[in-house]
Design a protein around this nucleic acid. Sequence first.
DNA 1: CTGAAAGCGCTTACAG
DNA 2: CTGAAAGCGCTTACAG
Lengths: 346, 346
Amino acid sequence: MHLTLKDIAAEAGVSAATVSNVINGNRARVSADTRDRILRIVERRGYVPSAPARSLAARSSRIIGLLVPAADQDSLTLSPHTAGIIGMLERELRRHDYHLLLRGIARPAEVTEVLRSWNLDGAVLLGFLDAEIDRLGRRSVGDVALVAMDAYADNPLTLGVRSDDREGGRLAARHLLGLGHRRIAFAGPASSATGVVRRRYEGFRLAFAETGAAWDEDLRLTVDTTHASGREAGLRLAADRPDATAVFATADVLAIGLMEGLAAAGRTVPGDVSVVGYDDIDIARYVAPKLTTVAQDLQAKSAAAVRLLLDRLAGGAPPDAAVTLDVRLILRGTTAPPCTPESPGR
Amino acid sequence: MHLTLKDIAAEAGVSAATVSNVINGNRARVSADTRDRILRIVERRGYVPSAPARSLAARSSRIIGLLVPAADQDSLTLSPHTAGIIGMLERELRRHDYHLLLRGIARPAEVTEVLRSWNLDGAVLLGFLDAEIDRLGRRSVGDVALVAMDAYADNPLTLGVRSDDREGGRLAARHLLGLGHRRIAFAGPASSATGVVRRRYEGFRLAFAETGAAWDEDLRLTVDTTHASGREAGLRLAADRPDATAVFATADVLAIGLMEGLAAAGRTVPGDVSVVGYDDIDIARYVAPKLTTVAQDLQAKSAAAVRLLLDRLAGGAPPDAAVTLDVRLILRGTTAPPCTPESPGR
DNA sequence: CTGAAAGCGCTTACAG
DNA sequence: CTGAAAGCGCTTACAG
């Protein structure tokens, strides 16, 4: 039979309330003596409190949800970036004695269902579009603490945590411009779809403005964030714009696809074309040449998300602005000065 | 104010028991009329049942735990393989109206704590050593359904789900032997540590026996499953055994590290040395040349795990043997016939 | 510092 | 087919 609070109380000869106070570290409410005695019994008997019961009585579940978009019948596709975030979030939560419930969201209404059903203390929204986040109303959120990661939504019910995407785009472009490149392509999803891409693009353009370089709108490549579409884009770029000497991609997989497409078109990297990626996932170091890329601090991002959630749960005032984390450029082998017309790469 | 069962009952003019029966699809216990009426009210008011309350009353949480080893203060390191499994498990569980709790396990005792505390209906153990799984006793497991994935533990409290690792090793070796290779290295962790590696090694050796080829014990390379140690191993192999013409690695990251090490030592792949990996993770198609590798069916593996858990929850008899899933060889660009001594690769 | 009692939101025999 | 009542294992004022 399952061991309960009552059993411990009976064995210790105290009330359930007292055991409860001990379990919850309510040190002010119980003498050191009885506390020690109870703790010893708990230890010896291997008593584990029932989380559902606590959750019900205390109206707090100590569960944080990680909500990720999922096409209805599809499985969650966890990118290396997402997988990294998950691992770090779990660690941070575990340190604070919280648990992580991972949930794919197919319909907007499911957000409410999960939050309410499990009485979540908070949740992290990862990978949603800004518009989807903005659509969340008080009715569906209740008073659950919500972190919107990598989003630029305007929803006041939501705490923002993201990297400095504008700076990331700017660093990439400044690096390439500094090497002497002028015809630099920008490859990524449509800016209208995600604020992250828009900010990276803005930063990218900003570097052009700062340098006084002209930006050629035709070099804005709209591409899905996949290896396959990166490859196609590389092929197309080589065919349509052989004068382009560099390309910045908004994700590493995309950049690696581009490298393959460029190679297939007979262009060398970085000899003919320099490439800069984004995220610094493991693969960036596995390809040859190794990918120059903009790195985010996943560790800091996850820690910030958890801190924000726990602060709100502790009753702290929410910050007045989204948390923005630093970003840095990792120089590796895919960038080099452009070939001068006099000494073509091939 | 939170909407409860009672509110719905009051509005419908029925008892809480009846609403409960409707919610739980207990069709035999309530007339179609009242059922429809109640469902309409539930719908209109957006009532969501409290999972902790259900969990407490019904002694079933509808939560399945995914337990992954974690060094104490460390974050979960989710390999691409693990990330794939997680995504598919979540989908399967969601389809069956279950939830996934992700938990890193630092100390063995934590397994019991999580199982008991959340009243988990079941759990999947992913990435544990066979010895750790064997150590789990009835006391710590209770009657929770447990799937040990990719393990060859002997624990009767545990349901095994894994790929046909022996066949995987055999396929790899047969492919290389068939191409004419004879001095083939085997790179992977020590067989003693994990049953998975031992089975792959056995299958590998089996192919040698079947072909009548001699196996050279010195070509058993003991290496961690990381890109870095793969690289080192590649360097070492090129230096110590320049006569080896092929290598089979027990993981794709390892294989890719080997390729880099071989390249750094001036050996070409597959010109001088053929390489076969394991898992067919995305990266296998991102490197050049693309990696020949043994693919597991993650989808099937996840589905089997969930089916096993749900069957046991439904009271079905556990299968008498572990579930073993098929495996297949994916031919790509890293394998070729060996160079004859007369026409050396370089 | 400690305890009795009510209550959290459900489910489950049991009786009708 | 429907309801009254007990109970799941905790927490939380409240009183002492």
